[in-house]
Nucleic acid binder design. Structure first.
Lengths: 104, 104
DNA sequence: GTCTTATATAACAAGACTCTTATATGATAT
DNA sequence: ATATCATATAAGAGTCTTGTTATATAAGAC
């Protein structure tokens, strides 16, 4: 799965939001997601795994708990792509502008 | 499909790149995608449809051809989300910084 | 050690996605 | 009107995703 596909899932986006402001225990994430989406602990854990393996999140053990934290490197990839798209588009608009000015 | 899911597909991202610098005939898009991904005209047409229906692209008829163009509104949605994520993350980092300074 | 708590994994079912081939539509040319 | 070109749609197959239940692992409490 590529970075965009990872974010294609609503639940994963929400998890990222939850861990983006700082470390959260897996259990706390589960609690919120369960309330909001009504899915099982297992399902949430699988999403956490996807985020881990794709580099969107990092984990560390703390006692019996596991703390998840967002890793902004992956977000950067997305951002770069959007930036490039916007760039192309803008170039196009600029050309149109130039056309219009030439005509008038 | 949400905006992120739309971009989850490699082919669709490539199509967006192709039409981001200005209008392109469906046929021209098909040609490039076919060469790069080896899929049929029908498959490309289906992706174009997804992009159309999700608001990522607009079309207009020109003779027998249909011209596709990127619509940047949808990209904005993604951008906003990334911005917000980065914001949360940054706030978190700032807090850590403050912590460290207090300690030293 | 045994029990409990926190989390991950396995196996599988249901549904969504993305192709394919075949066919339809709609514009242009003759 | 018919043929052709450009593109879209339909129906179906295979695959991928995302859930579920059941179970495993691993840490801490007693």
């Amino acid at each position: 799965m590529n970075a965009f596909a990872i974010l294609g899932d609503q639940v994963r986006r929400r998890i990222l939001e939850l861990i983006s402001s700082g470390e959260k225990r897996a259990g706390d994430v589960v609690e919120v997601i369960q309330e909001e989406f009504g899915i099982t602990q297992a399902a949430v854990s699988q999403h956490l795994r996807v985020l881990r393996e794709s580099g969107f999140a990092t984990v560390r053990q703390q006692g019996a708990a596991r703390l998840y934290c967002i890793e902004n490197k992956a977000l950067t990839e997305l951002d770069n792509w959007l930036e490039r798209m916007r760039g192309n588009w803008q170039t196009h608009l600029d050309k149109l502008d130039a056309e219009i000015k030439k005509e008038s």
